[in-house]
Simulated scan of single mutants.
Amino acid sequence: MQSWLTLFVEQLKATTWLEWTAVILGVAEVLLARANKVWLYPSGIAATLISIFLLLEVALYAEVLLNGYYVVMSVYGWYHWVKKRGKPAVKVAYANKREWIITLLIVFVGWGLLYLLLINFTKSTVPVWDAWVSSTAWAGMWLLARRKIENWVLLNVSNLFAIPLLYHKNLVMFAVLTLILFIVAIFGYYDWRKIINKEKLTLVAS
């Protein structure tokens, strides 16, 4: 326990202001997503762009690719969420069969492709684990962009595996942050379910 606390304190001391900014914006993104606010996207894009800059500095190119995907999906999600001219805003809903098929393809095809990239072009010591965390996060981001409640499930599958992975890599602070995001995502799922149930009651009442 003492060694864990010592490592955690060392991680805090080594964190730069730019890293703190990325972490704070990342937490803001999840909290805004839980509240079903479109401002989650500008917060997330800013956090991701900072992360890309930091990852380039330490030559983690596979992670840069993943974060680039986050930026693209965030821009897509921002556009998808915004109210279009003459059309209502996209509502929170459950994924349909077609969306579930796409989600599973993103998870398993993405897992395989990213694994191949990691073993062939990086020095990753945990390619299977790392690829799984990333592919489930990809799927979660796609569902979030479409305002599907299952995004919280996929993101938390990613978080669940990311926590021990980060600890394994001695990134204790980020493991703790991911645990916090895991808890927030649980509440996010139930908040979104309330929104869906409220919509159903409104339709029945009308």
Results as ranks from 00 to 15, higher is better:
Val71Glu: 00
Val133Gln: 12
Thr6Asn: 13
Trp192Cys: 09
Thr136Pro: 11
Ala145Met: 04
Trp111Thr: 03
Met173Ile: 14
Thr103Cys: 15
Ile45Pro: 12
Ser135Leu: 05
Tyr167Gly: 14
Val153Met: 12
Leu54Ser: 03
Leu160Ser: 15
Met173His: 00
Leu40Cys: 15
Ala175Cys: 07
Gly86Thr: 06
Arg85Pro: 00
Tyr69Cys: 13
Tyr69Pro: 01
Val176Thr: 08
Arg193Thr: 01
Ala137Lys: 03
Val126Met: 09
Lys91Ala: 15
Leu113Lys: 07
Gly44Cys: 08
Pro127Gly: 05
Glu63Met: 02
Thr178Pro: 03
Phe108Ser: 08
Gly77Met: 11
Tyr41His: 11
Tyr115Pro: 06
Gly112Trp: 12
Ser206Tyr: 05
Pro42Glu: 06
Glu29Leu: 08
Trp4Ser: 05
Tyr189Gln: 07
Trp138Val: 06
Val38His: 03
Ala28Glu: 00
Phe53Gln: 06
Phe161Ile: 13
His80Glu: 13
Asn170Thr: 12
Thr178Leu: 01
Leu179Tyr: 04
Gln11Arg: 13
Ile180Met: 10
Ile163Ala: 09
Ala93Arg: 15
Arg34Lys: 15
Val64Tyr: 01
Gly26Glu: 10
Ala62Cys: 03
Val82Gln: 13
Tyr61His: 05
Pro88Gln: 06
Ser135Pro: 10
Leu32Asp: 01
Leu177Asp: 00
Leu65Asp: 01
Lys148Asn: 11
Phe174Trp: 13
Leu105Gly: 10
Val64Gln: 02
Tyr167Pro: 01
Gly110Thr: 10
Val23Lys: 02
Asn120His: 14
Ser51Leu: 12
Leu143Thr: 07
Gly110Asn: 08
Tyr190Ala: 03
Val58Asn: 00
Asn156Pro: 10
Met141Asn: 12
Leu66Ile: 07
Val82Phe: 09
Ala33Gly: 15
Tyr76Pro: 03
Trp81Val: 08
Leu60Asn: 04
Val107Pro: 07
Ser158His: 05
Trp100Tyr: 10
Trp152Thr: 00
Ala145Leu: 04
Val23Glu: 02
Leu171Ser: 07
Phe161Gln: 01
Pro127Phe: 07
Leu181Gln: 10
Ile24Asp: 02
Leu40Trp: 02
Gly188Ala: 11
Leu144Ala: 15
Glu150Asp: 10
Thr15His: 10
Trp17His: 10
Thr178Trp: 04
Tyr115Ser: 11
Asn159Pro: 09
Leu116Ser: 06
